[in-house]
């Protein structure tokens, strides 16, 4: 099976060329529609590492909290797609209800539900109020119970488990050849997480596990993602009580000389998201995005061989492919 793509090609990488560094952020966060903040984060981390701008610790904590919130919302969107493919109507509505609370939190913090435009080079746009943290504590208290409810719907239902078990198995050698990453790789039993291996923000201060599957079928992919929701809830609840007071942005000196091939990568909900930037005279000369969904699409076309025709939609939903990111 060969994927046929190009229907959603926007050409963001070409439009950006020649635009000033600060004005790029609203263009690139349209690339990934389910977690826009991680795309902003890669871009800012790449330039901060090159210019050696030190980000204040309060800004780093807030970045971590918001990126984990968007990870939760993206994984719940995955569960809605899976419920839709399975034909279950009640879990779909439960998932959409829980997602709305997280999106409301993101809107209170940043000002928009899906396209935040919040992270800046050297910090963040505006400080978060005390009301936001109170609201976050209030919602997180009940959220563990709700995630357990979703777990009962998907993993303690015999019909669903029998359907997903041994469906769309991906072989380890194929996966490493295709260079897939993220939860799809972790479902195979490979412990690869950029948050642990190359701690880019202050992820080394938190205690969290990297959930791992063993066989690499659709059930493992679903299990890993539900486990990851719980882990990111624990990260947020650890970060809440550690947030220090202080500045939120440092205005470092940005050199206007030519520089080439600055690279940085980040763990976004779909996998490893990398970005390669070269800048001349304060404007973007070239920018290329390496998205995880592109590789995951080819892994899907490998995993689908030998399965029934009616199960294809289910396997596609279990890979969690963001179509905007494939074509860019």
């Amino acid at each position: 099976m060969n994927p046929d793509f190009g229907y959603l090609r926007t050409g963001v990488e070409k439009i950006i060329e020649g635009i000033e560094i600060d004005n790029v952020i609203p263009f690139i966060n349209r690339v990934d529609n389910s977690s826009a903040i991680s795309v902003e984060l890669v871009y800012c981390i790449a330039l901060e590492n090159y210019f050696k701008i030190e980000v204040p610790i309060r800004a780093k904590f807030i970045r971590v909290i918001l990126s984990e919130l968007s990870r939760i919302s993206s994984h719940i969107l995955f569960l809605t797609k899976l419920a839709n493919a399975l034909g279950m109507n009640m879990p779909l509505h439960y998932c959409l209800r829980e997602r709305e609370e997280i999106l409301h939190l993101i809107e209170v913090a940043t000002g928009s539900r899906l396209t935040p435009n919040f992270v800046r080079i050297g910090g963040i746009k505006s400080d978060l109020s005390k009301q936001f943290f109170d609201k976050l504590k209030e919602i997180l208290k009940g959220f563990r119970k709700k995630v357990h409810e979703l777990r009962v719907f998907f993993l303690e239902n015999e019909l669903v488990v029998n359907k997903l078990n041994n469906l769309g198995v991906l072989v380890k050698e194929d996966a490493i050849k295709l260079a897939i990453s993220g939860p799809n790789l972790r479902a195979l039993g490979v412990s690869q997480d950029i948050r642990k291996n190359d701690n880019y923000e202050i992820y080394d201060e938190f205690n969290f596990k990297v959930p791992i599957g063993d066989r690499g079928d659709s059930l493992d992919r679903c299990m890993v993602r539900i486990e990851e929701i719980e882990q990111s809830i624990s990260i947020i609840s650890q970060a809440l009580y550690k947030v220090p007071e202080g500045k939120i942005r440092t205005y470092g000196e940005v050199n206007t000389q030519l520089m080439e091939n600055i690279y940085s990568h980040v763990e976004c909900p779909h996998g490893e998201l990398g970005m390669n930037i070269s800048v001349s005279e304060g404007r973007i000369a070239k920018l290329s995005i390496k998205g995880p969904s592109y590789n995951n699409l080819f892994a899907f076309s490998k995993a689908v061989i030998g399965e029934k025709l009616e199960d294809i939609e289910l396997i596609l939903a279990s890979f969690d492919i963001c179509v905007c990111e494939v074509d860019k």
Partner: peptide
């Protein structure tokens, strides 16, 4: 935002 692009 993509109105300058050739594909759109």
């Amino acid at each position: 935002p993509f109105y300058k692009s050739d594909y759109i």
